[in-house]
Simulated assay, not measured.
Amino acid sequence: MAATADRPLSIDLAPTDRIAVIAGGGDLPRELVRGLTAAGRPPFVIVVGGEDRAGLTDGDHTVLELEEYGRLLPVLRAARATHVVMAGSVSRRPRLRAIRFSLGLLKLLPGIVRGLGRGDDALLRVVVSHIEAAGIKVVGSHQILPDILAGPGALTRTRPAAAHQAGIAAGLAAARAIGALDIGQAAVAVGRRVVAVEGVEGTAGMLARVRDLRASGRISMPGGVLVKCAKPGQELRADLPAIGPDTVAQVHEAGLAGIAVEAGRAIVLRQADVIATADRLGLFVVGIDGPAS
């Protein structure tokens, strides 16, 4: 549900404050732009080069290639941005040899190299620290539109059966384990067995793998569950796990019975469509409690 003029944003803003959205791929940046605009706070949008621009370039915006990261702060200052929200996926990493370095960016280079060598969360922490050191506040998408977070319990008519609980527990443990290594945020369990964990290919790639494994007979037991949760100690303002209608369709194609996401720490994009699609396909979507970080 988007913010409206009658239903204000969840963060306090002064009349002169302005939010900039650094927009990657997927539906989340568009939901944020629509919500902010509806609330009378049209944002300045920085579209990450190479990502889908649909619905992001109608208002005040610019396109910034990953290798032009050194221009980020000057662009934000020129737009008079006081707050930044980072939303959406980025399909590739910057090419270090092609980065246009400034003096300030050279000082940041060791952190960027370490982040590139470790994982997404490590790199995002470097970016967040760089922006906030310039006096610009970084906020999470869920801090602007809190209704995009998954709530506890079943969202759908179909609920997980008792037989699914062991798979949910196994998938959650696996997702937390790879999250602690800054690898991914999701796992698939069939019965009590974890059959796939998320890598750099993302959730869609993992689900395609599960679909192919089932088609080849490597996974013979019916059903199973996709589990997504935040990484332990994750920078929650930048990369919360998310699902959307496409995820539901991919779960169905993989022969799974449903989805479990961490309540309060996972985003459900286009929630009405997620519920309608899952109900039509007979799948469950449920918000679960995750272990304490």
Rank of each mutant, 00 (worst) to 15 (best):
V261K: 00
A249N: 14
V126S: 05
G49P: 05
I148T: 02
E65W: 12
G224M: 03
R95L: 12
A208S: 12
R211L: 10
A292F: 13
V90N: 08
T247D: 10
R30Q: 07
R159M: 14
A122E: 15
D60K: 13
F284A: 01
P152Y: 14
A257Y: 09
G140M: 11
L103R: 13
V47R: 12
I136C: 01
V188N: 01
A154T: 12
A133I: 05
A189Q: 02
S89T: 14
P94A: 06
G282L: 11
L64E: 10
G202I: 06
P8D: 01
I168A: 05
V286Y: 11
R218G: 09
D246F: 08
A161I: 08
A170H: 00
D6W: 13
G184Y: 01
P146H: 09
D121P: 07
R192F: 03
R192I: 04
Q250L: 15
R218M: 11
R18M: 06
G264S: 09
P232A: 07
L105I: 02
R77G: 12
A14L: 12
A154D: 11
H61N: 11
Q250T: 01
D273Y: 04
I288F: 12
A23V: 04
V75F: 13
D147F: 08
M86R: 09
H142C: 12
R97Y: 09
R209S: 14
D120A: 15
G199M: 06
G199F: 07
A81Y: 02
T16H: 14
V190D: 04
G244H: 01
G104N: 10
A133F: 08
V286P: 02
D246L: 13
A150I: 09
A81V: 02
G290D: 01
A170W: 01
E235I: 08
G202T: 07
R41Q: 10
A39V: 03
R30D: 07
G153M: 11
G244E: 00
A187N: 00
Y69C: 13
L207D: 05
S141F: 10
A278I: 10
L66V: 09
R209D: 15
A215I: 05
L124A: 10
V197P: 02
S89F: 14
V227E: 00
F284H: 01
A3S: 13
R211C: 06
A177S: 15
D239K: 05
